[in-house]
Nucleic acid binder design. Sequence first.
DNA 1: ACCTGAACACCGTTCAAGT
DNA 2: ACCTGAACACCGTTCAAGT
Lengths: 208, 208
Amino acid sequence: MDNSEDTGTRVIRHTREDVTRAALSILDELGLPDLTMRRLAAVLNVQPSALYWHFANKQSLLAAVSDSILEQLRPATATDDWRADLHAEARALRDALLAYRDGAEVVSSTLALGLGGDQAEERLAAAISRGGFDERISAAAARAVLHFILGHVSREQQHLQASSLGAAREPAGPLDDEDSAGGFEFGITLLAGGLEAYRMPGVASLRT
Amino acid sequence: MDNSEDTGTRVIRHTREDVTRAALSILDELGLPDLTMRRLAAVLNVQPSALYWHFANKQSLLAAVSDSILEQLRPATATDDWRADLHAEARALRDALLAYRDGAEVVSSTLALGLGGDQAEERLAAAISRGGFDERISAAAARAVLHFILGHVSREQQHLQASSLGAAREPAGPLDDEDSAGGFEFGITLLAGGLEAYRMPGVASLRT
DNA sequence: ACCTGAACACCGTTCAAGT
DNA sequence: ACCTGAACACCGTTCAAGT
């Protein structure tokens, strides 16, 4: 647990990556509201002020956590079916977000602030552009897909936590996990189908 | 400004609606981070603890603010073109969110927590179902549209604030307002087009 | 290069008591 | 029905100084 390849056991000294890792584990175990600078410092056996040597403020720490979550994105596989690829990218992103408690919320708010990398958006755009769409279209569509995914998974994670807390209440309904995953695929299908329709506008009355 | 139709000028006494209104105006003038219970109390000339007679906690206050924002949704007009109606509903929602600073973020996080009304989702679903889609499909599609709108407008408002702060920086590019509004319409078009394609799957290879 | 100590300026929330 | 007063248990951030 401690990377103490030092002389004794004292003088802990953390790297930026240590801090990010510890933050990620607090996030996963206690959730975003309990991920405070003071608690993080306590876990690292350090004064809160020490964290500000590694990060300018809490928001940049959260951006690093967000990037860390997105780094676990399973590698892309480019087949000859761009729609299948887009679905695969979307699922990979959903899985990465679901891998940590409140993952979607952290990534969502980080990206909304214009912080964090754009690996996710770029991979979605890459899959789409393999469908023969130009860069502008691919980028705009990727953003639409990303907004949908972040919103959907945020709600999903919120429900997961709510139902894990209030054990009783509604019998969870016959539709919840199943329906949530179904809703996810459906949303991606709509956006992919919309792209397909976009390039052959003769089919239906597509102007509005 | 004061609804003091009392004997003198003392004993202010607020209603839940007064509190919500005051919160909304702090939100609009100072933004979500500065909308604190203590500041709200100060504006109302009241102790912070007084707010807890009107609301159980800050989150329910924010839910009331969110509802308040969505109440300003301009009324729906049902024509014979469901796609035009959906676009109109989407624009109405965007305008309502843009009407207050950080409006999208407040509504987004409130809805994510399962709080607040579902007027927005229902109106989107109503427009979609006029296209002849069953209730399940309409509901799922409405949620997808709503996620896109909240994500898009959140980012839009973030950029608005960022550029109003850092006056200089990038020359704003030839694409920003224009591109943002264009991206919005494009997203709605994709989802509407996806729905149209969904009911006539023979057109292209739609299975995945 | 990384951290301590001490402080500043705040938070949300509870609860007994007042009118 | 609506509010005060006082307290509890916290926050994020800064900054001089230490090693």
